[in-house]
Amino acid sequence: MNVSIIKYNAGNVQSVLFALERIGINAVVTDNIDKLQTADKVIFPGVGEASSAMKYLKEKKLDEVIINLKQPVLGICLGMQLMCRFSEEGETNCLGIFDNNVKLFSADLKNTKVPQIGWNTIYDLKTNLYKNIIENEYMYFVHSYFAEISENTIAKTNYGLEYSSSLQKNNFYATQFHPEKSSDAGQKILENFIKI
């Protein structure tokens, strides 16, 4: 199994690499276009700010590469938000793989603090990414912006409002939470992705 992790200026790459190691996968971290295109699986992680991340992807022409990938791709956290159409963070036009807008959690939402930090539940689970994952399993989230619900939603979470904690369209999968930090259930989701 040949897994490539996209190298760019907003990675939490170590955690993803280590999590893959724990399930017996030695991934490579690369921005080499050929390596990304020929990998069996591609992971698009990210912790950081949307507009500077998009700017970097465009400079490296990685934006075109990512949207044209044919193998299963998994976006994580900022990676997922960048796969959406538009983010309020820095008023950024993103990759547009998912036709979702990404919005800031409002401070007026009931009992919510921003960023959301910690373990929240995922429900209405769809696709094989969630095979053998129980409804209302807890996942680890750290984010201030969220993707709206759409036809691509494959998991929902509630934080003052209901939003997409996971999206899927064709070969593209994405999670707002960090499977690499979500204990045994998160590890199971990574294993499921590798098997897709």
Partner: peptide
């Protein structure tokens, strides 16, 4: 830190 990160799957 690296030894810990390799070993544990929580933040």
């Amino acid at each position: 830190v690296t030894r810990i990160a390799k070993q544990i799957n929580i933040p």
